[in-house]
Design a protein around this nucleic acid. Sequence first.
DNA 1: TCACACGATGTGAGCGCTAACAAAGATTGT
DNA 2: ACAATCTTTGTTAGCGCTCACATCGTGTGA
Lengths: 360, 360
Amino acid sequence: MVPMRSSDPAPVMTDVARLAGVSHQTVSRVVNGSPHVSEPTRAKVMAAMEQLGYRRNGVARALAMRRSGTLGVITFDTVRYGPVSTLYSIEQAAGSVGLGVSIAVAEQATSDEVVRALARLQDQSVEGIVAIAPRHDAVEALSTELRGLPAVLVGGVHGGGSGPIAAGDEQARPGQPAVGIDQRGGAAAATRHLLDLGHRTVHHLAGPRGWLDAEWRTEGWRATLEEAGRRVPEPVAGDWSAGSGYAAMRELLAVDPDLSAVFAANDPMALGALRALDEAGRRVPEDVSMVGFDDVPEAEFFRPPLTTVRQHFTEAGRRAVGMLLDMIRPGDGPAIRPGPPAVVPTELVVRRSTGPSPHR
Amino acid sequence: MVPMRSSDPAPVMTDVARLAGVSHQTVSRVVNGSPHVSEPTRAKVMAAMEQLGYRRNGVARALAMRRSGTLGVITFDTVRYGPVSTLYSIEQAAGSVGLGVSIAVAEQATSDEVVRALARLQDQSVEGIVAIAPRHDAVEALSTELRGLPAVLVGGVHGGGSGPIAAGDEQARPGQPAVGIDQRGGAAAATRHLLDLGHRTVHHLAGPRGWLDAEWRTEGWRATLEEAGRRVPEPVAGDWSAGSGYAAMRELLAVDPDLSAVFAANDPMALGALRALDEAGRRVPEDVSMVGFDDVPEAEFFRPPLTTVRQHFTEAGRRAVGMLLDMIRPGDGPAIRPGPPAVVPTELVVRRSTGPSPHR
DNA sequence: TCACACGATGTGAGCGCTAACAAAGATTGT
DNA sequence: ACAATCTTTGTTAGCGCTCACATCGTGTGA
């Protein structure tokens, strides 16, 4: 393929220097774009680099500069839309400022697994950590294990979480920087939408216990119901999967056959619920209205097209990297620099799975 | 959180050595589990490491050993199930043999983007590359840019592709190691299933032009039809998304209102197609049968539950890492070592979206 | 004309580790 | 008892780069 035996060692700075007739330091200056190099010299060096196919050795550079230029991302073994989108946007943002991204995926979101993932990243000398969509225990484990390594959480923050989070809220890690999506606000919007449509109350297919996002969604739902003075039905928890949504919906139906509005913790669960409803002979939205969360690309093609809460994962990823950058390269110019609030708003996307209550 | 100012420099080997009253080399031996250290010495060193909270500096190690211990993965900005699962399984496999994983996501699967992603990884001195689900042009670009860096493609290989691929097949990169999933076989199985059900022919919602997986699926479908002596209807291409499946299905319906069996290039496209069918008043599977590809976790909850072709992405990822390991650490003991064939079989999962032809 | 500044370049040291060899001490055989 | 051997430990020299500083030249102002 390539006319190069991978056996002959890659050229190093000294090789380039020798060929160009300068010192290795001058080559370094050229490589790093120093202004103190004369034009002819720069040209000679460039030519030599070109001829040799020189690439700077990142490891040596990292050692000398005492910074690896890599961020670590901890994520979970889940192909869920949110975490994945966030991961990609983190990589984009990091890449745009010249940082690499190493990942460690924890098989479970348990403390143990998270700690092991963290260790893997630390072995690679990452400069900072972004942890995606954490659970309570994982966050806990993370912060005790961090030992001064800068880290930011992303994905599991409710309204109001820029920088150290105000005390008194049962969330994230007091003091642990976090950027997140307004889970609570999104859940509230979904619930309010349903209430506005005339439904007497809204049932909830909750996400798994212990997941920050899940809990804030539940919280937003509950608060809205309480504010409106409505009955708060017992939520049934799932595990984010369509299957669990299906099971949970059946359970809900058994307990309360008269329900008319359901808020699911995410879109796959809504999909499962839709199927359960169909099997039970309930029409959506005529008999039951359904709202999801995430706005996965497929949501528009569910039957019926799903009303859901869109999250801007990309923005969240960008801000997380910006925040981390502020921690590891303080005062390094405006690279990404997020706007003031580190909490990204959500957006209710109304499609055809919601309609007026049949009870009026 | 953690009672450690990140300002005081991390302890290094010499610090441990001094505290333990030995030479830094002895510390190195302990860290690397050398057998030539006496038990009391080892204990002293361990204690010193513990006390200081020592962690080996991976960068320095990488420089000295001339190997970074990191693999690079190139993937695309797509939250599709397959690529994501593969990515995770690669990380697992790499982690299990002590390798780190850096990722670079190309915004598009174009040569330009792939080359830039590759450059980002090379700057991190990765020891090898795994490229996920490539397109033709991307593979092309990759192999010219690789300059001796070991690389393996994963995800886009039809039956028969262990190691350098036999010439004569229009696929991957002649000579480019690849591990993949038996796309052609899976497509053939799907098509045959439909034919066995009595359908006269099978229409195809194809994946995007230029994607290896898409082309092999189309090929498998076409070959099966031809073998059976059936008419081969013109496929309509989509872009893997549900929206494109919807549009393509409508187009197919306009051209050939009598169709009774459809093979979609992936599950999201099948989902979109299902919706188009529903809007057109066709029942599935009574009027039209549908088969997808991938077996995404949600497929079981489509309406009706989707018959589809399951891919074992995890296995593919594992094998890719094993293969790469063979290239960068030849004869390094049986770490992952895949079994002989580097092509992972698929599995037809029959659910309720397929049924007997209405035309007989 | 000389002092001073400044731009362009080179020199040396060192980042934290591993590899290769050297130097002790312990053990063995004869 | 002495050489031969093995085990345990230390010493030295890099890996390829950047940083801090030294050096050389050229231009400027008095």
